[in-house]
Write a protein that binds this DNA or RNA. Structure first.
Lengths: 256, 256
DNA sequence: TAGTGGTCTAGACCACTTA
DNA sequence: AAGTGGTCTAGACCACTAG
């Protein structure tokens, strides 16, 4: 590379100081665009931070921040003492987000039908998951979540039974699940574990979901812990496979 | 809050300057631990950045960095001019990563069996996805991915046929897929789209996967684009539902 | 108007890699 | 030894929120 020449070749993009976009975001986009156009290819070394400072006339911290964003996005990786390199496309860095489900729960036309609420003795799996003795009382809630009056999710949940804290009506309604998915809810739970499995619809599920037994479905299992790290809720959502899918992207995305 | 008192109550944790852990990471963990212990509850306002500076004797940029990490992790959210607030648990921020699949492909015992490679005329779906005319030639590759000689994935892939670039043997082997999942491969693709669906195993798939028709399976669809943003590869992986699941966590995790 | 977060500067020192 | 990324300082100015 010739000294003093801009590393972005014929593009010669600059940081616009008057833009509402912060300098570091602009720099991220400039570098991404160059990768997108093939100026920098996977495996190539990006210009060093000091070069980028000079070229775009920004301070080291600003370059640093931009480069860190590229690394966060798995666009590049840094090797201390050596340089920052452009990554190849990497499926291992891909992730499927549940934001789509969040939108489902926030939707106005989403409603909840309580199918059943009762106290049941803990069986094998539930007693293990919720760390209570077998036969101990648990609250079982079965819900049907509808969108535009069409069944969408079937939800089965076991809760620790606390006789000092009666079940409040509002905890059963759509708002409670909405809160879980949007983070606006109460703060009963400290953390939780989620799992997604592929399954087929059982006869029990088929009935409430208006689907046929044996068709494909997603099972989203959840377990939530309180601030003492004790499990308080275990259950799962079932959704017909033809009504739900998860999508994501990998590699360099076009600048929005 | 009383002036001059540490905001972390009886804990009174400090930044250890001699630790190999950077100050900002220590600060992230200190704040997380306080949330975990209930010192700060969901909805609470965290101490302002200037307070944290004084309390932990670090510069504004270091506090900033720590707080930004908490925000990235969806542990807190910032409101300009108001403060930084602790989030409730939020399923919408959860994400399922494909790192598990990456490990599968990097495993030594993972092998690939090529079931078929041939030129086929583009049918409806493939011609749309790959943006070629119907009947145009495409390369069809059918692979079986095995772990410890047990079938794991069935992969069907359509590639743009380029007569000037013959199919190279190495592109068919496990290494090519390994590269895709680990980011160590060549750089044919600029980006791609992925989708996960729940499905049931067809008779064709059941045969090669040694599974029964009608059992649950994941379908991981992919389409990859080259540096001209032209689609070059479309296909999907099928995996038995009982051999694959995705897990993740939400909320505050215990400090490791 | 005071306090807050959002951005940015212009350096510094260190650990590490490469030659 | 020179260059690189990793961390950190001690401020600054701005836009925004709230009382």
């Amino acid at each position: 590379m010739e000294k003093g020449k801009p590393t972005n070749g014929y593009l010669d993009l600059k940081i616009n100081r008057k833009s509402y976009e912060p300098a570091y975001i602009q720099l991220v986009n400039i570098i991404k665009q160059q990768i997108s156009l093939g100026v920098f290819r996977p495996g190539d070394k990006l210009p060093s931070e000091s070069k980028l400072c000079k070229e775009y006339k920004v301070s080291p911290m600003t370059v640093r921040r931009a480069v860190n964003i590229l690394i966060d996005q798995a666009v590049a990786n840094a090797v201390q003492g050596s340089g920052t390199y452009v990554n190849s496309i990497n499926l291992g860095s891909a992730a499927f987000h549940l934001k789509g489900l969040q939108e489902f729960f926030l939707d106005e036309s989403t409603t909840v039908k309580i199918l059943e609420v009762r106290i049941v003795p803990a069986k094998d799996r539930a007693s293990k998951k919720l760390a209570v003795g077998r036969g101990e009382p648990l609250i079982l809630i079965r819900r049907l979540l509808l969108k535009d009056d069409e069944p969408f999710f079937y939800h089965k949940e076991y809760l620790i039974y606390d006789p000092t804290r009666p079940i409040v009506e509002s905890e059963l309604e759509v708002t409670s699940l909405r809160g879980l998915f949007s983070g606006t809810g109460s703060s009963e739970f400290k953390n939780g574990e989620l799992g997604i499995e592929a399954t087929v619809i059982s006869s029990e599920e088929a009935k409430v979901l208006k689907a046929e037994t044996g068709t494909a479905a997603f099972l989203l299992e959840h377990i939530f812990y309180d601030f003492n790290q004790s499990p308080v809720s275990w259950g799962w959502f079932i959704c017909r496979g033809d009504k739900l899918s998860f999508t994501t992207t990998v590699g360099i995305q076009e600048t929005l």
